[in-house]
Design a protein around this nucleic acid. Structure first.
Lengths: 110, 110
DNA sequence: ATATTTAATCGTAATATTGCAATGTATTAA
DNA sequence: TTAATACATTGCAATATTACGATTAAATAT
């Protein structure tokens, strides 16, 4: 198969999985960290920065953009990318709720 | 390929990606949520709960166990699973640092 | 107009993931 | 001992992901 049975899960579960999936590759983690560190739009130097071929970086950027976590502005012949802050905040809310599940429970099994 | 070039990334980036990857499937999200909700060890009913075949669940459980996020205790003919709280806390620390990157920056591009 | 630059897209090879039927293994029940 | 139960493992088919060379598209520079 290779095809997740998304229909048997809740929208929330699928949403968490989608966000997590995009963080599930170190190149995308590195791209996001770079965008945060630079703290401004990044035009062009991502290929040199990360160390993968240009089409590969372009593909990873596309996935981040599809999920709405980054924005891309065309600036002349190059494209400037930066974090989409509102969407990042929303993603954080969803993921934090998932990660903070342990705060709800006080059982002491195992 | 289909093979991530982990050697060109930092240990931290690879670690984040590994954690995220395991959350990148709704079945594993659902399993973890169930374990938290039950708030005690779960013996057996995961297959009925999630709605995937037994070998499929077993495989997902294995991945969660390999990453250390759950524990499994053999209890007679069944196996009881629960969250590995210490490791969950450590995972949270790593992921929160990644998710909270936006707090560091105050730039206002785009 | 032509060349240059930058990034997206296409095509494709290699590998990974998902899902499950069939089978194996270990423990308890009869 | 034999059967039943619960779960793990194996094997395999379908699909997804990763990576990159080649090419295309769009803007600027000459």
């Amino acid at each position: 198969m290779g095809l997740a049975k998304t229909e048997i899960f809740t929208d929330e579960q699928n949403k968490i999985a989608l966000y997590a999936k995009v963080f599930g590759h170190p190149a995308r983690v590195a791209i996001l960290q770079h965008l945060f560190r630079i703290d401004t739009c990044v035009c062009g130097d991502l290929v040199n920065e990360i160390g993968l071929a240009q089409p590969t970086i372009s593909q990873h950027l596309k996935e981040l953009k599809t999920l709405g976590l980054i924005k891309g502005n065309v600036e002349g012949t190059s494209v400037c990318y930066c974090i989409h802050k509102e969407n990042w905040t929303h993603m954080k809310k969803v993921m934090l709720e998932f990660l903070d599940q342990d705060l709800q429970q006080q059982g002491d099994c195992c």
